[in-house]
Write a protein that binds this DNA or RNA. Structure first.
Length: 288
DNA sequence: AAACAGGAACCAC
DNA sequence: GTGGTTCCTGTT
């Protein structure tokens, strides 16, 4: 995989195991959308980028020269997903997931954005989460104009979010999560720093996250996996439950202990493996 | 139009 | 610590 800068774009040549559409739309991040022209538009680090593919080349447009590292880190391009995929392929129970999860890279999102987005994700579906996040950004993010005349909004800072009332959040469609968002955003605006969680043992970081309003086990694991760099965080939602019942537990409901030991058995990349399983469940429509 | 989908809080036990 | 109920909105 060769990554370099050229004329306002970050170019990825010989991309291995990177399916842009699947990665952007699988539910790990909520600010990517496919455009009518087939390109992908997404926002991170307050920057809006357009991603196009041609001749096996992936081009991230609207970048600056110093952004190469930034995006290569965000899209987790330095990791050998081929090796991880091989682990899955070699597992009798998991190999069925490979065609559905292949090419997904786990993005390293900004902690605050992931934190708020996954509080919103509770008891919610991908389409609605994206809609709410978008409204939230339009309501109190920063407006940015693009050269082609269109515009986008950045994700709000903790301060901007903390300044909102429950009523305002409720109107944006967050429902009963409004007070959770207010409380948690205020705690962060008041000085709680999420970054040190990256360097803690996973159990400690998880415990910290669970102390926030609106953050339960599943949301905590999502934040750990999708923004804090814990590739062994193992979020289990209804889709994962369905898939795990079928693949590992002979149709019955696994206990907490069994889930925990499965996580351990899957090893240091269990969270990435989880994404393959999750996508398998969604794409084959398990439980439908 | 009632039923369902989707996690966390909260209160019992 | 486990189990049942409630919270809100969009879809069927």
């Amino acid at each position: 995989m060769d990554i370099y800068y050229k004329n306002g774009s970050v170019i990825i040549e010989n991309a291995q195991n990177f399916n842009v559409e699947r990665s952007c739309l699988c539910g790990q991040a909520f600010r990517f959308s496919k455009q009518r022209d087939g390109s992908m538009f997404g926002i991170a680090f307050n920057k809006g980028v357009r991603i196009i593919e041609y001749n096996g080349i992936i081009e991230i447009q609207n970048c600056e020269e110093q952004d190469v590292k930034l995006w290569s880190n965000y899209f987790d391009l330095e990791r050998d997903y081929g090796q991880i995929e091989k682990i899955i392929l070699d597992d009798e129970r998991l190999s069925v997931c490979v065609p559905y999860g292949s090419g997904i890279r786990i993005f390293k999102q900004e902690p605050f954005e992931a934190f708020i987005s996954f509080i919103i994700s509770a008891n919610n579906n991908i389409k609605r989460i994206s809609g709410i996040v978008e409204k939230l950004c339009a309501y109190c993010g920063e407006k940015k104009e693009l050269e082609n005349g269109s515009h986008y909004y950045t994700f709000p800072t903790p301060e901007r979010l903390a300044a909102l009332s429950e009523e305002e959040l409720f109107k944006l469609g967050t429902g009963y999560r409004a007070p959770y968002i207010v409380k948690s955003a205020r705690r962060i605006a008041d000085g709680y720093d999420l970054l040190p969680l990256k360097n803690m043992p996973i159990e400690s970081a998880r415990k910290e996250l669970l102390s926030f309003s609106g953050v339960g086990p599943k949301v905590a694991d999502c934040i750990l996996l999708f923004s804090l760099g814990f590739t062994n965080a193992f979020p289990i939602d209804v889709w994962m439950r369905r898939a795990l019942r079928e693949l590992f537990f002979d149709g019955r409901e696994p206990s907490k202990k069994e889930l925990e030991s499965l996580n351990l058995r899957l090893g240091e990349y269990s969270g990435i493996v989880q994404q393959y399983i999750f996508n398998y469940a969604r794409e084959v429509g398990l439980g439908k």
